[in-house]
Structure formats: C-alpha cells, structure tokens
Computed example of a mutant assay.
Amino acid sequence: MNLFDRVSSDIKNAMLAKDKVRLEALRGIKKEFLEAKTAKGSDGELSDDTALKILAKMVKQRKESAQIYTEQNRPDLAEPELAEAKVIEEYLPKQMTETELEAELKVIIAEVGATSAKEMGKVMGIASKKLAGRADGKAISAKVKELLA
C-alpha cells in the first residue's frame, strides 16, 4: 500500500474514532498529495519519494509555526500545530539519531574526499539526497559544517 492509499484509509479510521486532530492532519496530507498529483507537469501519479518530501515539508512548516506561536506567547495556537506535526511524522521514516547522522556523514565525506568547508556543497548535495526524509536539512548542514571545520 502506498502512502496515498494509507492516508486515505487512515482518514476513514480517524472519522470513525472521532479523532479531530488526527483527521485534520490527515486531510491536510491528502490535500497536499492531491495537489502534487494534479500539478502542472505531473504524470498523475505520486511516488513515495515525492510523498515523503511533501510530508517532511509539512512537518517543518508545523514546527516553525508552533515556534513562532510560542515566541508570541500563544500556546493555544502552538499546541494544535505540534499535535498535527506529530501525526504527520508517523508517516515519515524513523529519524536518525545524532550519532547515526554523524557516522553517515563521515562516510559521505570520505567518498567525496572533502577536506575543507569550501567543499561543503559537494557533501551537502549527496547527503541531502541520501538522507532525505531521515534527517532534517538544518541538522545535516550543521553537522557537515562541524565535521569539515
């Protein structure tokens, strides 16, 4: 079962369970998936890779919104954003720990042969493709910068 079908099935389950937060998050996911399927230049299909990128983007948006709401002392608005982010994260692959990320990046740096911060672009290009969905771009960037320094 691909991600689109899984989300559609889970929407039905959330409706039956009367889980409003989960239902809202799942409907948001399905909306984004449908938009990607029908976007100009799309072949009408949604690969799981594309779906994972959409999900990662959605989680990032929710967390950034929650952070802004928290900074503005609006926990009433931040909590639903974090709850939705948590639901969306269930569909993403397990995130890498910092030590796993560091180990992967060391291998990539060795493959590329990077020795200085000037070569960060080469490493980031490969790392962001290889670790897509399993690690946040900011975390990858920070760790690469640290390892090349």
Rank of each mutant, 00 (worst) to 15 (best):
A83I: 01
E111T: 09
K106H: 01
E119C: 04
A56C: 03
T97V: 02
S65M: 11
P80V: 12
A142E: 11
M58K: 09
V112E: 14
D5C: 04
K18A: 12
D5H: 12
S47W: 14
E90G: 01
I108S: 03
A66D: 01
S141K: 12
A66I: 11
P75H: 07
E89W: 01
L131K: 02
M58Y: 08
I29T: 07
E104D: 09
I109Q: 07
D48N: 15
A135V: 08
S128N: 14
E100T: 10
A127R: 03
L52Y: 07
A56Y: 07
L77W: 02
A25W: 02
S141Q: 07
Q95E: 14
E89H: 00
E90C: 03
M96H: 01
A25T: 03
K31N: 03
A139K: 13
K60N: 14
I54A: 08
D136C: 04
E104R: 11
T38V: 03
V112Q: 09
V59P: 05
R22H: 08
T50W: 00
D76V: 01
M58V: 06
D48A: 13
L147V: 03
M1D: 13
I54Q: 06
V87W: 07
T38H: 13
A14H: 10
S42F: 09
A114Q: 05
M1S: 14
E102F: 02
K86Y: 06
F4M: 10
T97L: 00
N13W: 06
E64T: 07
A36G: 12
L92W: 08
R62N: 12
D48F: 14
S8A: 15
Q61I: 11
K138C: 03
S42T: 08
E98P: 00
Q61W: 09
A132C: 06
L52E: 10
E104N: 09
K129R: 14
T38D: 08
E98C: 00
N13Q: 15
S8D: 09
K145H: 12
E102D: 10
K12P: 00
E45K: 15
E119N: 03
E45S: 13
A56S: 14
I29C: 05
M58I: 06
K129I: 03
L147E: 02
E89I: 06
V87N: 05
P75Y: 11
E90Q: 14
L23Q: 09
L55G: 05
A36T: 12
F33P: 02
A66H: 06
A103G: 02
G113D: 04
L147M: 07
L147T: 08
R74E: 14
M124N: 01
R22L: 06
V144D: 04
P75I: 08
R74W: 08
A85W: 12
Q67K: 15
P75W: 10
E35M: 14
K130D: 02
F4H: 12
A78C: 05
M15T: 11
A56K: 06
L52V: 15
K130W: 01
G113S: 10
F4Y: 14
R62E: 08
I108E: 05
V59F: 02
N13D: 13
T38G: 11
E98Q: 13
E32R: 13
R134K: 15
E98T: 10
S65W: 06
D136W: 10
L46C: 11
A78F: 04
E111D: 15
A66W: 10
V7A: 01
D43Q: 02
E79S: 11
L77S: 03
